[in-house]
Simulated assay, not measured.
Amino acid sequence: MMLRKRAWDMMRDDFPIVREDASLAEAIRVMREAMVDAPDSQVVVVQKKSGKLVGAINLWKLFKAVKQSVLKDENLKEGGEVDWDQQFANACLICTQLRLDEHLITNPPVLKPNEPILLVLDTFLKSRRDWALVVEGEKVMGVVYVTDVYREMTRDMVKLFK
């Protein structure tokens, strides 16, 4: 049963998307909105106007970009008193001006819709990522997270142990 599962069986076809000309702040906003319905959502797909895949940005890349924005202020590095509210406001302003392409994962892990669950798992292991994009042609069909694969695998395992 489990070995018959394919990427399309596990993929989420409702996923956050931004265009390639979006700012870092826009990607953060879109991911935050996606997390309302899917708290484990952690990837924003970046596309051209035509819908062609450009890349993706994940939570870790967003964290790094925000950290770089906060640390741009020389006052933080001097070790004196810091107005953290003002610092955060400055970082937010910087984020609205940062280009997304500077933080983009341009070679994300990609799956074909009909790839079996073992190849999906192998893609996670080889890419050392806990997500992959399901792509057909040049169009992103969905996103599969390692948690989705885990749920599928353990669903059948739990049935066998009862």
Score class of each variant (00 low, 15 high):
V44H: 01
V44R: 02
V45N: 01
V45H: 01
V46R: 06
V46N: 06
V46F: 05
Q47D: 00
Q47K: 13
Q47L: 15
Q47I: 14
K48C: 01
K48L: 13
K48A: 12
K48R: 15
K48G: 01
K49H: 07
K49C: 02
K49S: 12
K49Y: 07
S50Q: 09
S50M: 10
S50K: 08
S50T: 15
S50I: 11
S50Y: 06
S50C: 10
S50E: 13
G51V: 11
G51P: 05
G51Y: 06
G51D: 08
K52G: 03
K52Q: 10
K52L: 07
L53G: 01
V54R: 09
V54Y: 00
V54G: 03
V54C: 09
G55R: 07
G55L: 10
A56Q: 05
A56D: 03
A56T: 15
A56C: 14
I57M: 05
I57D: 01
I57A: 04
I57P: 00
I57G: 02
I57E: 01
N58A: 14
N58D: 15
N58I: 08
L59Y: 06
L59M: 11
L59I: 14
W60H: 08
W60L: 10
W60Q: 08
W60D: 11
W60T: 07
K61F: 03
K61T: 06
K61N: 12
K61V: 02
K61A: 14
K61Y: 05
L62R: 07
L62G: 04
L62P: 04
L62Y: 05
L62V: 15
F63V: 15
F63I: 14
F63G: 06
F63L: 14
K64V: 04
K64M: 09
K64A: 12
K64F: 04
K64T: 08
A65W: 00
V66P: 00
V66R: 04
V66M: 13
K67A: 12
K67T: 11
K67W: 10
K67S: 08
K67R: 13
Q68K: 13
Q68H: 09
Q68E: 14
S69H: 08
S69G: 15
S69C: 15
V70F: 08
V70I: 15
V70H: 00
V70L: 15
V70Y: 05
V70P: 00
L71D: 03
L71H: 04
L71V: 03
L71Q: 07
L71N: 04
L71Y: 10
L71F: 11
K72I: 03
K72P: 00
K72L: 13
K72M: 14
K72Y: 09
D73L: 06
D73H: 10
D73Y: 04
E74F: 09
E74L: 11
E74N: 07
E74C: 04
